[in-house]
Amino acid sequence: MGIISKLPAYVERVPGGGIMTTSAEKFLNWSRASSIWYMLFGLACCAIEGLMATGASRYDFDRFGMIFRASPRQADLMIVAGTLTHKMAKRVKILYDQMAEPKYVISMGGCANRGGPFYYDSYSVLKGVDKIIPVDVYIPGCPPRPESVLEACLKLQDKIKKEKLADWAASTD
């Protein structure tokens, strides 16, 4: 429940009620962190664990306000789930560029983090998604449990809530 249960304490005691004072920064960050829409986009076996199992009813991404979007234009978060080959790396870069600011990236699983089992003796696999796009949260595991994907999303929410409005304005210049 969290903030909802504490809400009556914050509501201003004015006739009619329904008014709450907060800083614009806090309000914007809170609303952004509570509706991270992720892109429906998987590369390998991690997609089954991270996008399908975690998105389905048992682990339920939706309770954090996370809904998948089938278009990068509507997405805030890209979960890079799986082995990233050199051929796919270009496509991932294009998809990342198509996402609207502010945008975040979660690198999921050993392959996306650093090549995983394909680190040695592989000609086709990119050794880490952070070589092409900036990554906010890394999840270890092969594949990671749905719980760790949820944990990563909570970490990302914490990161979004700490953002400063001034920095945000500067980044859009």
Partner: peptide, 15 residues
């Protein structure tokens, strides 16, 4: 041609 013996390019890392 990556399957040729002794090929090493891109970010190929030999074990």
């Amino acid at each position: 041609y990556p399957m040729r013996r002794g090929w090493s390019g891109r970010d190929f890392i030999t074990k």
